[in-house]
Design a protein around this nucleic acid. Structure first.
Length: 635
RNA sequence: GCCGAUGUGGCUUAGGGGUAGAGCAGCUGAUUCGUAAUCAGCAGGUCGGGAGUUCAAAUCUCCCCAUCGGCUCCA
């Protein structure tokens, strides 16, 4: 017998060889129905596995993240099985669970098309209905290599060869289908209830662009139809918030064939942008920054000196002026270095914070362009901070605070990543360690948790990145803090220390918004176009009911304008319902309806875009409350 | 850049070998009507660009360009 203890502290006895699913059944049939995976002695374990030793067991249902992963992973196997049935010459690559579903990468002589998706779904449903048991097998490495070679699965062979020599290889079998897999898995294919293929895509084998391109099928699955439909609805809803769609509808910006990746900002988009910049200038002045502006085109020698010519060339644009090579700046730092060098600096000036709203151009791959999120010309809200080594940690903490001040103002949640030395890097390993440790210390002292990205740093230093989410939960890097010991060296930057001698300053590059363009993209999706009043391109629209109310409407407009409120009047000969509809679609914060009643009482009727009709008020009171809302940047 | 899909007036879109149809927006006129679309009329596209097949191409083929979904890469 084996003794099994359960999370509630109770213990039960079973004969040796009892499977975990039988244990679940013994507890309750409902549990057995909902359980996805067991945790036996702290290890996630197949429900089909048999018990031979005492231990503790916890059963997880779909609501647990670990269970979701198992559920989706088994779903991926079903997808692969279906594809193999339909196109037997297909070779399997990998098929993991991902955030909201799973995918499987295939190499097939058949090119998958959207028309294939219903076929595959149908076959998957068939496999689910067959309710095949999913069984684990173990082979030695050599056996496994031989086996997968024999069934023409070259990618699997390659995967096995990369596993540690001494490790046994586990396989999972369901009916005629078998896959190399660490597991664990669901006990049967019938445990998967509702599946949906989402999209087709290309993907390089092992994510390396020098490898062959495979065909990837993205899909998702849920235990109930309701959850699946919920998810699909959410995706549909999220698409409505897409900044590219809203940017067009709200007249914020356009991207044209004439300038792929080079956005045009329209009048309304400019208002938004200018508000963001104004706020930025105010905050940076308060935080002790000086602002500069450096040229967009600078000569080749500068870029050779900075290392960009060697390390960043494939992303740069070039031009020739009077037979001399110039580059269009992809970053602002070299310009900032030159500004630093215009004066002799004392340690007393430090930390010296030099900011620049710098327009940079980078050659991004055509397939990578994405609305305002990924463009080829963008404005970085850059700053370079020059300081003493002992000021590093405090200064980084200061920037972290500034980032938080900005992001929380907009109600963003964000996550932090730390990137370390890349292969193509300048400077010694010691320098990098020192720099990386400084970033880690600052993060720890701020109590921030972060994701570590080994080898993802800039070529001149390690960095802390701040990531924000778009409407489809894709994350985009916005703020970044990069420590740089290289640039001051390259440009021979110095300051005069307490001892009267020249010393080398350290420097950080940092941005808060990241790029104004990307930030506007994120902001648009975050607010679904309904920007807080302080950012709204049009804050108020006055809607006269009939022509005889036009004069009064224009009077109101004047009054609001005099209070620096962005206001328009809609004097077309349309019914108020029509004007309101349009105002709502334009997401204007306040619509003011004026007719006979309002003229008589010298008031206005206020309609808030979300709260609806707020009744009437005097113009003066409205101006006061709105001015306060704008002034305090209420979201 | 790579894989796949898409590309019709300002926007959304019908049409899939016989020389483009609609709704919204626009303009004109009528209407002056209180909280998400008043009515009528007019005008607007040669179908992303180029080449080819054909008596005939928006519709078929090829090559470009752009966009979308991914991959790769990055703010």
């Amino acid at each position: 017998m084996v003794t099994i203890s359960l999370p509630d502290g109770s213990k039960r006895e079973f004969v040796k060889g009892t499977t975990l699913i039988q244990v679940a059944k013994d507890i309750s049939s409902n549990l057995a129905k909902n359980v996805v995976v067991a945790v036996f002695n702290g290890v996630e374990t197949d429900l089909n596995s048999e018990l031979f030793t005492d231990g503790s067991v916890e059963f997880l249902d779909f609501s647990d993240e670990r269970a979701k992963e198992v559920y989706r992973h088994s779903s991926a196997h079903i997808l692969a099985q279906a594809v193999k049935r339909l196109w037997p010459d297909t070779a399997l690559a990998i098929g993991p669970a991902i955030d909201k579903g799973y995918y499987y990468d295939f190499n097939s002589s058949h090119t998958f098309t959207p028309e294939d998706m219903p076929l595959i779904e149908k076959e998957m449903k068939k496999i689910i209905k067959e309710n095949q048991p999913i069984l684990r097998e173990v082979m030695s490495r050599d056996e496994a290599v031989e086996f997968f070679a024999s069934i023409n699965e070259p990618f699997k062979v390659e995967l096995i060869k990369d596993l540690p020599d001494d490790e046994d290889i586990s396989l999972y079998r369901q009916g005629e289908f078998v896959d190399l897999c660490k597991g664990p898995h669901l006990p049967t294919t019938g445990k998967v209830k509702h599946i949906k293929l989402m999209s087709l895509a290309g993907a390089y084998w092992r994510g390396d662009k020098d490898n062959p391109m495979l065909q990837r099928i993205y899909a998702t699955s849920f235990p109930t139809l309701e959850e699946l439909e919920d998810y699909i609805t959410k995706v549909e809803e999220a698409k409505k918030r897409d900044h590219r769609k809203l940017g067009k509808e709200l007249g914020l910006f356009v991207l044209l064939d004439e300038g792929p990746g080079f956005p045009f900002f329209l009048p309304k988009g400019m208002i938004l942008r200018n508000e963001l910049e104004n706020f930025w200038r105010e905050e940076h002045a308060k935080a002790g920054y000086n602002e500069i502006r450096t040229p967009i085109i600078l000569n080749r020698q500068l870029w050779e000196n900075s290392g960009h010519w060697e390390h960043y060339q494939e992303n740069m644009y070039f031009t020739t002026i009077d037979e001399t090579d110039f580059a269009i700046k992809p970053m602002n730092c070299p310009g900032s270095m030159l500004v630093y060098k215009q004066n002799l600096h004392s340690y007393r000036e430090f930390p010296l914070r030099i900011a620049e709203m710098g327009l940079v151009h980078r050659h991004e791959l055509s397939g990578a362009l994405h609305g305002l999120m990924r463009v080829r010309s963008f404005t970085q809200d850059d700053a370079h901070i020059f300081m003493l080594p002992e000021q590093i940690i405090d200064e980084i903490k200061g920037v972290i605070d500034l980032v938080d001040r900005f992001y929380s103002l907009f109600g963003f949640s964000y996550h932090v990543e730390l990137s370390t030395r890349p292969e193509k890097a300048m400077g010694s390993a010691e320098m990098w360690d020192k720099a990386t440790n400084a970033l880690i210390t600052a993060l720890n002292e701020k109590g921030l948790t972060y994701k570590l990205n080994e080898g993802d740093g800039a070529f001149y230093g390690p960095k802390i990145d701040f990531h924000l989410q778009d409407s489809l939960d894709r994350t985009w890097q916005c703020g970044t803090i990069q420590l740089d010991f290289q640039m001051p060296e390259k440009f021979d930057l110095t300051y005069v220390g307490e001892d009267g001698e020249k010393h080398r300053p350290v420097m950080i590059h940092r941005v808060i918004y990241g790029s104004i363009e990307r930030f506007i993209g994120i902001l648009t999706e975050h607010f679904a176009g309904a920007f807080p009043a302080w950012l709204a391109p049009v804050q108020v629209k006055v809607l006269p009911i009939a022509e005889r109310h036009h004069a009064y409407a224009l009077e109101i407009v004047k009054m609001l304008q005099n209070s620096n409120i962005r206001v328009e009047a809609d004097t077309r000969s349309e019914k108020v319902g029509y004007k309101i509809r349009e105002g709502q679609l334009q997401k204007i914060p306040y619509l003011l309806v004026v007719g006979d009643k309002e003229i008589e009482g010298a008031t206005i009727s206020i309609r808030h875009r979300k709260k609806g009709d707020l009744g009437s008020q005097s113009v003066k009171d409205f101006i006061n409350t709105l001015s306060e809302e704008i002034g305090n940047k209420i979201i």
